[in-house]
Each structure stands twice: as structure tokens, then as C-alpha cells.
Design a protein around this nucleic acid. Structure first.
Lengths: 112, 112
DNA sequence: TAACATACATAATAAACTTAGGTATAAGTC
DNA sequence: GACTTATACCTAAGTTTATTATGTATGTTA
């Protein structure tokens, strides 16, 4: 993603799994639009990051795809496999734990 | 850091700046202990990540160091420079914005 | 007809980490 | 006495994950 990109490393996979968990099936380009919309344009998934991430998740067996034609353009729809659903739960749990830890550290008051 | 390490990329610098912002001066090893303590051992800063990050921050002029002897062992104390204080504020603002965006995405309810 | 939007993709590069080592001193354990 | 653990610094090789820059192709809007 762009904008605050340094912060993002490692979260893209979790975002993808969460989107597919909530929406049953989505295609890549749709995910970029969705994230942009949700964050009012402050978080932008770059396609150079997204597509390799999708291919990796598919190779790992967490998602699977079907290609369909829509108005003369091919769309590659992805959905979670059963192991992908478990992975989504795990990744979400991990990231919320991480965010909690991070907030513990970042909201410490100065020592007097 | 270890444990949930994929999630951590890009946040280490912000954590360092925040620790120095709150504690005036700290040495590297102390930071690893502090983060471990705050997170009850769930977040571990590896020294292989920490020391290069400290050196980079110093090269960028955001922190400066003084070496002191403590019980026959050298400690390298770091503190924020004036530009480092501004950078700390900026990075903290960025990371909170990012966490907010992330939570917007990750807490979406399923579409009916 | 040029630019923008849709929709996929890859390759070179850069950044940030993990893993694995290294040096040195001190304290505790078998 | 030997070994492990803790303190305290450090670097290097390799991996992962992103950015940036392209490329292909179709459809729509200015």
C-alpha cells in the first residue's frame, strides 16, 4: 500500500483474508477500490503488492480463484478455502493482539 | 521483533522514538527489556533489528548517543535530538492514523 | 485523440526484518 | 572448575514484503 507505507508491511495478507471472509468472493481490483473507499483514500493498495500477495495465498491453499468475463474484461474472483477461513481467524487474532501490544507501548505516559 | 513478526515491520522505529520520548534516555538493551515487560513477553525486539535501527536513526540525526561505563560494561545511551522530537510526534500521528484505518477495514461486518 | 478507468500481470529495486553468529564481563549453578 | 544465563554491544547473509515502473488490453469520457 501507499501512504504510511512503512507501517503496512505484513498486514496486506490479513486485509485480503478479512475482505474475503466478509464478502465471500472478490476480485483483486475490487479490493483496491474497497480499501480506498473504506479509508477515504488514505490507504492505497498498490497492484504490485496485491497481485503477488494473492498468488502467494493461492499457492499456499488459503484462497482459490475462478475467472469470469464481465463486459469483455476478465475478472479473477477469489474466495477462501476451508483452511483459508481458519487462517483468516488466526491472522485476525494475531493482528488484534499485536495492535493491543503496540498501543500499550505507544500510549505510555512520560516517567516523572 | 519476534512473535507476530510479520506484523511488526515498519513500527520498530516508531517504538524506539516513543520510548525515548517518554524516558529521556535509554540504552538499547534496556529497550528490549522494556518492550518485553510492557507486553508481558508477547513482543520481543531482536537485537539484530534494534541496533541497525538505532544506528540509522542516529545517522539521520533523530537521536544521539553517549557511551558510559556501568559495572565494567559499556552502555550506549540514546536521546532524542530536537528534530527527533518532531519526528517522534509525526511518526506517532502516522501510526495512530494507520491503526485507525486498519481497524476500519478489519472490523467490517459481513455483507448480508 | 488523448486521458482516465477497469483489470490483469511481472521485474528490478529497496527496506526492514530474521537468523545466526561474534565479542566481552559478571553472576549463578552443577 | 565448567557451564549456563544475563548483561551489553555489534555485524552479515538471507528472506520477506513492499515500491516503482512497466506491460497488455478494453471501454469510457473530455
Amino acid at each position: 500500500m501507499k501512504e504510511n507505507s512503512q507501517l503496512l508491511k505484513g498486514t496486506l495478507t490479513t486485509v485480503i483474508l478479512k475482505l474475503l471472509n466478509d464478502n465471500n468472493r472478490m476480485y483483486g481490483y475490487e479490493m483496491t477500490k474497497k480499501v480506498k473507499e473504506i479509508t477515504n483514500g488514505s490507504l492505497l493498495i498498490t497492484e504490485g503488492a496485491l497481485y503477488p500477495a494473492l498468488h502467494k495465498l493461492e499457492a499456499e491453499g488459503f484462497i482459490e480463484s475462478t475467472i469470469e468475463q464481465f463486459e469483455n474484461r476478465p475478472r479473477k474472483y477469489y474466495q477462501l478455502t476451508s483452511t483459508g477461513k481458519k487462517e483468516a481467524k488466526k491472522k485476525l487474532s494475531d493482528i488484534f493482539n499485536f495492535i493491543n501490544d503496540l498501543q500499550s507501548i505507544l500510549q505510555l505516559k512520560p516517567v516523572f
